[in-house]
Amino acid sequence: MANTQNTELIFGLYDDEEDLLRAVKSAKKDHLEIYDVYTPFPVHGLDEVMELEESRLHIAGFVYGAIGTLTAFLGMTWIFVKDWPTIFGGKPYWSVPAFIPITFEMTVLFAAIGMTVTFYLVSGLGPGIKNPQLDDRITDDKFCIAFDKSIVNSGDAESFFKNTGASEVNSKNI
């Protein structure tokens, strides 16, 4: 995943996500350390068999949202109670019901922007970023498992790919 330079990868391509799932399971069983798995669409159950940690984006989202809530509500309170108290329509300075809509919108705005930016940052994605591509068909209909050659030796990898029914095996330096 990380953009470390000069990693030599050996990767196999599968034609179907169910083959891929079976292959990932058997790699886990054989204790072959997977460098990464690439798929054209989110494969249901893949994160479970890869034993990926659950994403913590929602926690970040909650924190961003809470910041938005506080910013909006305390901001309006400060402005209308302390900085420039004004009576509108006979309502009290601190007219809580009237603050709710903006508070809600700011909560959503902060949470959405915060989470999206976090997502791209932690995933190393963004405009102008050139991530190495193993194969052009990965975004079409091929499912790919990659091993780092410095961790898994080529022989093991090749026999693994053969046993699990990979349709192609290639190597690439990234």
Binding site: V37, Q133, T139
Partner: peptide, 8 residues
């Protein structure tokens, strides 16, 4: 955005 299709 340099999307790779990584499982993570």
């Amino acid at each position: 955005f340099g999307w790779t299709g990584s499982a993570k």
